[in-house]
Design a protein around this nucleic acid. Structure first.
Lengths: 198, 198
DNA sequence: CGATGACTAGAACGAACGCTCTATCCAGAG
DNA sequence: CTCTGGATAGAGCGTTCGTTCTAGTCATCG
């Protein structure tokens, strides 16, 4: 019990490999389009291990995948917003960063939370809840950043809704159109919108 | 051949019933989450009829469902934008209309094009293409409306990207959060953004 | 040492998947 | 009338689905 290092590392390694693989696959193929056997195969893990770590089955695994996507995007959000104190510059940079990720994956990797959660509104409440929490967390990160930049708290909370929604929608539009233009326009327009509250 | 009425009406009736049912189901469950047998069952049609009208199978049917969603939203877009000549008022009305549809369906019916197309980027090029065409058509409807309201053509084209992306993202956020707030904020902020180009 | 328990391994189950196939129906043409 | 071809009908194909279950591995601890 004291020597957690080897065993727990191996444990965490397997479990994390499953979640990462699930998140990546569901990001590209959606929740329903991704099979547990495919996940276990690509993660180099047997079916028994998957059900050992996720006794709740596919739903529990899907919810964990959404939570991982949540954490990853939260980190990107914090990094980008902290690197540039002026939201008028940080927002276009954020959009450009999303566009780059999209282009680098050949327009395959959209938002992992969205693609996993879409179509699971009915019948998978755990996933829907995880997605709702992700959106709420992202909003609060944006709102905090705006407050830190000197905006009124009420304006910041209000704007955070549209910042997240616009980025999400523009990423989707960019993916479908296979073009960076929607994200580029979104970054520029969000900067202009935010600036109008100065 | 002259008396098309009875036969062609029946034909169109069956085919259209299939597409409408497919569109509605895929809107709620996604493309992969919807089975052809479920579609035929709920449409009151046998499997043979589905493959008779859609020899291309599920992909062809999915593309037709996306095209139907495209037409429906295009019509809503035109109606709402034409009813109010000032975009500053029409955009919030549009957002409110989407919010109402979402709430009326108990947050189940999001954008039919998005939910069908997400996760089919790889492996279903016909559906991806239909979705891209839908987004492009919506943008041009918005851009035309802005030009008619007196905006410069270049500003209108530029803004149309963000208008569609923000509405799309806000509808998604509203659905996930089961709240009209994101769409309400989106309508208000889009009006403000557009007004800043006057 | 044997015992324990977390973890790995994969065969097997019933159900559902997309799709193919043959048979039947039936209005209109000749 | 027969004939024709679009439309309907659904059994059945092979495959994959999510899940369950038993067996086996292996480090740790008493």
């Amino acid at each position: 019990m004291k020597t957690k290092a080897p065993q727990d590392l191996a444990t965490a390694g397997t479990r994390e490999r499953i979640v990462r693989t699930a998140s990546r696959l569901m990001q590209r193929q959606g929740y329903e389009g991704t099979g547990i056997k495919q996940i276990s195969r690509e993660a180099g893990v047997t079916l028994g291990s998957v059900y050992h770590f996720f006794p709740g089955g596919k739903q529990e695994l899907g919810a964990a995948a959404v939570r991982l996507g949540d954490e990853e995007f939260t980190e990107l959000l914090r990094e980008t917003l902290d690197a540039e104190p002026e939201p008028e510059k940080a927002l276009p940079a954020l959009a450009a960063s999303l566009a780059q990720g999209l282009r680098d994956s050949d327009w395959l990797d959209g938002c992992p939370v969205t693609s996993t959660a879409v179509g699971t509104a009915s019948g998978a409440p755990g996933i829907q809840r995880a997605a709702a929490e992700a959106f709420a967390r992202w909003r609060s990160v944006v709102a905090d950043s705006l407050v830190a930049a000197g905006f009124a708290a009420s304006d910041a909370a209000d704007l955070s809704h549209t910042v997240i929604a616009t980025l999400e929608g523009a990423e989707l539009a960019s993916q479908v159109a296979r073009s960076e233009t929607p994200l580029e326009a979104a970054g520029r327009h969000l900067a202009r919108l935010v600036a109008s509250y100065r």
